[in-house]
Deep mutational scan, measured.
Amino acid sequence: RELRDAFREFDTNGDGRISVGELRAALKALLGERLSQREVDEILQDVDLNGDGLVDFEEFVRMMS
């Protein structure tokens, strides 16, 4: 339940997936600093298991585990 709530916080447009822009904004909020595009792309590449360029809830749960 906590992970579902956190996912909703990251998924600002409510489409059920976290985009690169949403991921960048969430990481900035969490870390208090802006990451480079390359750093965000590397994180997305590690987390995006199905290669669609987005983070779905299952991928998010794995990222947070």
Rank of each mutant, 00 (worst) to 15 (best):
N13M: 00
D11C: 02
T12V: 03
M64P: 01
A6P: 00
E22N: 01
E33Y: 08
A25F: 09
R1S: 08
G32V: 03
D41K: 08
N50F: 03
R4M: 07
E2Q: 08
V55G: 00
D52G: 09
R34E: 15
L23H: 01
V61Q: 10
E22V: 02
I43L: 11
D52Y: 06
L54D: 05
T12I: 04
L35A: 14
T12L: 04
K28W: 09
Q45N: 03
V47L: 02
Q37H: 02
D11M: 00
R1C: 05
E22Q: 03
D48F: 03
R38P: 10
F60K: 00
N50V: 05
K28V: 14
L54C: 05
K28Y: 05
I18L: 15
R34F: 04
D48Y: 13
E22R: 02
V61P: 02
Q37A: 12
L23C: 07
G21Q: 12
G53C: 08
D41G: 06
I43A: 15
I18S: 01
R17S: 09
R4H: 09
I43F: 04
V40R: 15
R1V: 09
L27A: 15
L44S: 03
G16T: 01
K28I: 12
F7I: 01
V61H: 12
M63K: 02
S36T: 12
R34S: 11
A26F: 10
D41F: 09
D56H: 11
Q45V: 08
A6W: 08
Q45G: 06
L44P: 04
L27H: 09
R34Q: 14
Q45C: 05
Q37S: 08
D41R: 07
L44G: 11
G16I: 00
R4V: 08
A26R: 03
E42V: 08
R4K: 14
N50L: 05
E42S: 07
L3W: 06
R62M: 07
S36H: 01
D46H: 03
S19I: 02
Q37P: 15
A29G: 07
T12A: 06
L30A: 05
V55S: 03
I18A: 01
A29W: 10
F7V: 00
A26M: 15
S65P: 06
V20D: 13
G53K: 08
R4P: 00
V20A: 04
A29T: 11
A26Q: 02
R34L: 06
G51Y: 08
D46N: 06
L3P: 02
G16E: 08
D5I: 05
L44A: 15
R17E: 04
E33H: 06
Q45I: 11
V61T: 10
L54M: 10
L23D: 01
R34T: 12
Q45Y: 06
V47A: 07
G16A: 03
F7R: 00
M63W: 11
S19E: 06
V20S: 06
V55H: 03
G16Y: 01
S19G: 10
V61R: 10
I18Q: 13
I43K: 13
D5P: 01
L35P: 11
S36Y: 04
L54P: 04
R17T: 05
D11N: 01
D15N: 11
E2M: 02
E33T: 10
E42W: 06
E42L: 06
R8V: 06
G53A: 08
M63P: 01
L44Q: 12
V40S: 11
V55L: 10
V47T: 10
R38S: 12
E58G: 11
E59C: 13
A29F: 05
L54Y: 06
R62Y: 06
L3G: 01
G53V: 09
G32R: 05
L23W: 04
L3D: 02
N50W: 01
L31V: 10
E22H: 02
D52Q: 08
V61M: 04
E9P: 02
G14A: 01
F10S: 07
L54S: 12
L30M: 01
G21V: 09
S36G: 09
E33S: 10
G16H: 00
R38L: 10
T12D: 03
G14V: 01
F60V: 04
G21L: 10
G16K: 06
A29H: 07
E58Q: 08
N13A: 02
R1G: 05
M63V: 13
F10Y: 07
R38N: 14
F10G: 03
E2C: 02
E22G: 14
L27S: 15
A25R: 13
L27G: 15
R17Q: 06
V20I: 03
G53S: 10
R1M: 15
A25Y: 07
S36I: 12
M64S: 15
Q45D: 07
D56L: 06
R4Q: 05
R8H: 00
L3Y: 07
F60P: 00
V47F: 07
E42N: 00
D48P: 05
R8G: 05
R34V: 08
D41P: 05
E59G: 06
A25W: 06
Q45M: 07
L30V: 10
R17K: 12
